[in-house]
């Protein structure tokens, strides 16, 4: 186990970091915000942490360096959220991709502060993979809470029918703000932790390919829950590893895999699992409906119908 672990350490690390990067896109997407600012936040988190570590004479705790990155990213995310508040859909996606690419150009032109084209190296810290795992577990815990109960339903309403959400008294704008801030936190955490694990960062690491990676993870895994991001992160990190037998053609196979996933698995792998579960639930519900109909109590039947309908709706 230990030998296997030593040999695959980088892939294990990559899985957790990819998970966080994916969350920075998936979290806003769940609230109907199609934003790629997560990649800009990754860059901000990584560069801030690197600058803090390299520029200070004493050894800096990862909490401080990564924390500084998160702070910067959250502030920038808040400002960005205000600036782009009118944009929706693909337009928002394009605007946030532009922001990410502009951040990359700034990193190129940052002179001594960012190390210019060579980027920064020698970002040494005592961060262990254990801490990264703890961060991921905590993130997953918090997200589980937002996906359940009233809060979960409110978020679904904000995404699926913002007008209805407004009429229900939900402050949609506040949710959108939270979406941006969440993206800032996850993105900068991923960037900060990655730079401490890898010890280098350069502008090529924070480019468009990261957008593509994150999007692939979410679409393959499923965007409705953090579980999808986790599934996607595992697949996207480890699949190429197992495609080694294809040698030169691994990229071709990989492309085909993504295409097939896009056509046939619109909800991601998580969606397939959900569908199977819901089909089961629906079958049960239909059974209950028949029993309820037999009761013949007018008021009672109406209530049961309403409940049944809403549960069916949910099961769809």
């Amino acid at each position: 186990m230990s030998a296997w672990y030593d040999a695959h350490l980088i892939l294990v690390q990559a899985t957790f970091i990819s998970f966080l990067v994916a969350l920075s896109i998936q979290f806003p997407m769940r609230m109907g915000v199609f934003s790629f600012a997560g990649v800009a936040n990754y860059a901000l988190g990584a560069y801030t942490a690197a600058i803090v570590v390299v520029r200070s004479d004493e050894i800096v705790s990862p909490v401080v360096s990564v924390g500084a990155g998160v702070l910067v990213a959250v502030v920038v995310s808040l400002i960005l959220a205000l600036i782009v508040r009118r944009l929706r859909g693909l337009y928002l996606a394009m605007a946030t991709i532009s922001v990410s690419l502009i951040v990359q150009v700034i990193a190129f032109n940052g002179g001594e502060l960012t190390g210019g084209a060579s980027g920064m190296f020698g970002v040494i810290s005592d961060l262990t993979i254990g801490s990264v795992i703890v961060v991921c577990v905590v993130a997953a815990g918090i997200l589980t809470w937002t996906e359940r109960g009233t809060l979960g339903r409110r978020i679904d309403a904000v995404r699926d029918d913002p007008e209805l959400a407004v009429s229900m008294g939900i402050n949609v704008n506040r949710y959108r703000l939270v979406a941006f801030v969440g993206s800032g936190v996850f993105g900068s955490l991923a960037g900060g932790l990655e730079v401490l694990l890898r010890s280098t960062i350069s502008p090529v690491n924070v480019g468009f390919s990261l957008v593509v990676t994150a999007l692939t993870i979410i679409i393959v895994g499923g965007y409705r829950s953090w579980v999808g991001a986790a599934i996607g992160a595992v697949i996207v990190t480890w699949l190429p590893f197992y495609l080694q037998a294809m040698e030169r053609y691994q990229q071709v196979i990989y492309g085909l895999f993504v295409v097939v996933a896009a056509i046939f698995v619109p909800g991601g792998l998580l969606g397939i699992a959900d569908q199977a579960r819901r089909r089961l639930v629906r079958r049960q519900l239909e059974h209950e409906d028949q029993e309820a109909a037999a009761e013949q109590d007018a008021g009672g039947a109406a209530v049961v119908d309403a409940v049944g309908a809403s549960r069916k709706e949910e099961a769809r």
Binding site: F34, V212, L215, T216, I219, Y223, Q251, V252, Y254, G255, L256, F257, V258, V259, A261, A262, I263, P266
Partner: peptide, 13 residues
């Protein structure tokens, strides 16, 4: 979303 990701996959080939 799906068009975007389908296109990305296609582009890679």
């Amino acid at each position: 979303r799906q068009i975007l990701i389908g296109g990305i996959g296609l582009a890679g080939i």
